[in-house]
Amino acid sequence: MTRTDDHPAVEVEPVGMIERIRLSGTSRLRISAVREYGIVFAFAAMFVTLSVTSPVFLTSANLLNVLNQSSDVGIIAVAGTLVVIAGGFDLSVGATYAVGGVVAAQLTPHIGVFGSLLAGVLVGLGFGLANGAIVTVGRINPFIGTLASQIMIRGFALVLTGGALISVTNTSFATLGQGTVFTVRYAVIVWLVFGCILAYILGRTTFGRYVYAVGGNAEAARLSGVRVGLVRGATFALSGLAAGLAGIVAASRVSTGQADTGVGLELSAIAAIVIGGTSILGGEGAVWRTVLGVLLITMIGNGFNLLDVNPTYQQIFQGTIILVAVGIDAFARRSRR
């Protein structure tokens, strides 16, 4: 290949590049830090504030409680992160969450605990695949497509239950949601393990790269040989699977399948994703951001309880946090000019 050292114009430049790498190491970090690590600062600030103001906050029981409360939204949001990065949007997860739990609860008497829990997850995966098909093959805007499928899936859950609560008498059904290992709930472990798996998929695998590529510039991705539809569809499938998984965890926690549970869960998930700093425009973001976003939101709720503030203010505060998160992002983008 070209021996670059023959050619002065090329020879000079790599040297310049290395110089610039050195230069950029320090000062560059500082400037982009606010935008890049805003969620870390916010998380740390909230954590410190609550530690100082509430004696209970920093106890391990309370922290485990925060993790446990985060697990449903968390499982859904980490998968939702991939959907958003790929340029999509999944509004159907709250309904899928309900169906997953209902199916698991209903099937337990027939096929046993393990089979029925698995079935709950698979039903979620199925709806996820359907969403993927709607958005990619059907070329329907993901916002509208999953809004419609959400209504259908919720209806499906109602048809299955006939509006009644499905209680499970088999006690081992509750293990997933209530069992602990060294005082840590299985639910928390499921969440964290699932998050790690998705972080690995997104950060280290070729599929993860394609997810960023598809959301960043679909046409450029296509012209690079990436199967855009397949990748997008797969993120929806993962999101459905996650909703099913969160659904069985929740059903197991209360030993009940409910058709009307998880209303608005999709919005909490999206809020966590956005607060974490993943761009709703697609192409940028990370799973760890979402994990911190979920924890921040849960901590706010937890803090309000601990400090005994009227819970109605909590929503106002959470809404403000979302605005601030998006605002910082927009401001940082502008000041980067």
């Binding site: 290949m1 670059t4 430049e13 790599p14 590049m17 610039r20």
Partner: peptide
Amino acid sequence: LISRIGIRASG
């Protein structure tokens, strides 16, 4: 490739 083609960037 970056050095072969002479791409100038911070890294």
